[in-house]
């Protein structure tokens, strides 16, 4: 982790201290919505078969896009926290109340690219009745290559949500373009920042996911700090 990322994380920790009850409420709300979306997805997948599988994928994608708007609400809270501004709990639904379509467009593009990248793996391993060794090797290679490509793609547009929050006049595509410009030469640093949370991820697994209530605010505040730094 480079020195700038260390400073960003240190600043995020300092700003979060003393207000964890609010920050944890945001994490619990996000977690609750994730669980709810998983439950809804389970309702919509009737059984095995090609049709139900594709239907399940579509339902999952739609739910992820909808969740994106609430992630924008959480991002607004942590951006305000970093700036020392008061942030009521109603900020969680602020993007939903005001021009939710802008966030939905960005979410749709990001989720759609992720699903398109997964198509070869579904075609090779999930849909056929019998999986060959060649298909497994292809899937593993594609997963690594596609995963890296998707991470670079997400890193490019990681700041678009904050740009949308800061400027109500900017369009979703313009925000994505501005984000890509801001991230020029900083993508590596951003990926390193995200990777620095791997240890926390491991600890969260040990706590059966409960630790995410405290780690998610730290992560989101660090990403917001990265935006403040790149601005």
């Amino acid at each position: 982790m480079n020195a700038k990322n260390r400073t960003i994380k240190q600043n995020a920790r300092q700003k979060l201290l003393g207000g964890y009850s609010e920050h944890c409420a945001y994490a619990i709300l996000l977690g609750g919505l994730e669980v709810l979306s998983g439950w809804i997805m389970g309702l919509f997948i009737p059984g095995a078969g090609m049709q139900s599988f594709i239907f399940g994928l579509i339902v999952s994608a739609v739910l992820q896009v909808l969740l994106f708007v609430f992630y924008a609400g959480a991002a607004l809270h942590f951006l305000k926290t970093l700036r020392g501004e008061p942030s009521p709990l109603t900020d969680f639904i602020e993007p939903l109340r005001r021009s939710a379509d802008r966030y939905l467009v960005v979410g749709l593009i990001e989720v759609a690219v992720g699903y398109v990248l997964m198509i070869p793996i579904y075609a090779a391993c999930v849909l056929p009745d019998r999986v060959t060794r060649g298909a497994l090797i292809f899937s593993a290679v594609w997963l690594i290559a596609g995963g890296i490509a998707y991470i670079v793609f997400l890193a490019n547009f990681a700041l678009s949500i904050f740009i949308l929050l800061d400027d109500p006049a900017v369009s979703p595509l313009a925000a994505m373009k501005m984000s890509a410009e801001k991230m020029r030469g900083k993508k590596g640093s951003f990926v390193l920042l995200v990777l620095s949370f791997i240890g926390y991820g491991l600890l969260v697994i040990f706590t059966f996911g409960l630790g995410l209530i405290w780690v998610l605010p730290y992560f989101l505040a660090s990403v917001a700090g990265f935006y403040e730094d790149a601005k």
């Binding site: 920790r13 706590t207 409960l210 630790g211 405290w214």
Partner: peptide, 17 residues
């Protein structure tokens, strides 16, 4: 393991500098 992992998370988040 559960409490230890939570304790490490809290300790790491509690530091300022």
């Amino acid at each position: 393991l559960f409490f230890g992992a939570l304790g490490v998370i809290f300790a790491l988040l509690s530091r300022k500098t």
